[in-house]
Amino acid sequence: MMYLGLQSSFWQLSQRAHKVFRVIFHEAQYRVIGKDEVYLSWETAQDVFESEGIKMSRATYFRGVAELVEKRIIAESVRTGIFFLNPALIFNGNRATFIQQIITDDKEVLKEAQQITAKRALEAHRELSGKKLKNIGESIKIAKRD
């Protein structure tokens, strides 16, 4: 999933960075579903380029990776070949699960989420109760007419 924040950056990327981005999409689609990191190697890129009929040299590939890092679309990790996807721009996985993990990790956010949920549940209950009372009133009016 790409967010609008990436749109302006995406169109400013060079052709080499666009090609490397295709490798990232390929990996995100087939290998790293639900994760925030991707393994980028020249060997993997060669396979993707070959399957899609793209020509690119090794040096150009690494310049494309460097450009994506510079533009903050991906970030290097301390492990060789592993790059983090910028979650503000690209998300790979179930967003609800991701948000739930953030909520459960932060006790203040968890408390606030519980309060919001309780408030919405109470409002829904009141609305439903109001509709039931209105329906009962309508049925009494109809019964009196008959």
Rank of each mutant, 00 (worst) to 15 (best):
I136S: 02
E108R: 12
K144H: 04
L6H: 06
A118L: 10
A121P: 01
A121N: 08
I99E: 13
T44P: 05
F49T: 01
Q15I: 12
G130N: 14
Q115M: 09
Q7C: 06
P87R: 08
D47C: 07
L85V: 01
A113R: 10
I33Q: 14
M56K: 04
I82P: 06
K144I: 07
I116N: 03
I24F: 00
I102G: 01
M56R: 03
R58P: 01
E27N: 05
E67K: 00
N86Y: 00
E138V: 04
Y30S: 09
R126L: 15
F91T: 04
E70V: 02
Y61V: 05
I90W: 03
Q101D: 14
R58H: 11
E123T: 07
S41C: 08
A88D: 14
D47M: 13
S41W: 06
L68N: 06
R63P: 00
I142V: 12
F21I: 03
R145W: 10
V38Q: 00
R126K: 15
F83H: 15
A45I: 04
E112G: 07
S57K: 10
Q115I: 08
I136Q: 01
D146L: 11
K107D: 13
I73P: 03
S9D: 05
Q115A: 11
I99F: 10
V20F: 03
Q12L: 12
S8V: 13
W11Q: 11
I99Y: 05
R79W: 07
E43Y: 08
Y30L: 13
Y61Q: 06
H125L: 10
I103H: 09
E127S: 10
E43Q: 13
R126S: 10
L128D: 10
Q114R: 13
A113E: 12
A88G: 11
Q7E: 09
R16V: 12
S8P: 05
E67G: 00
K107Y: 10
Q46Y: 04
V23L: 02
L13G: 02
V69K: 11
A75K: 12
E52N: 06
K19G: 00
N86G: 03
T80Y: 08
K35D: 10
K144F: 03
V32N: 13
N92R: 04
A17P: 00
Y3T: 09
A75V: 03
E123I: 13
G53S: 03
H125F: 12
T60Y: 05
G64Q: 00
N135W: 01
R72M: 08
A121Y: 02
Q101P: 01
Q46A: 05
I116T: 07
V38G: 00
N94A: 06
S57W: 05
I136C: 00
A59G: 12
A118V: 07
V109Q: 11
M1C: 03
K55V: 11
T104M: 14
T44K: 09
R79Q: 15
I33M: 09
L68W: 03
K141Q: 14
K19S: 11
F84A: 10
I24M: 02
H18S: 07
A45R: 04
E76G: 10
R63I: 01
I99L: 15
I54W: 06
S8E: 14
I142N: 08
E138W: 00
R126E: 14
N86E: 07
F25M: 15
V48W: 08
E70L: 04
A17H: 02
K111E: 15
A143Y: 08
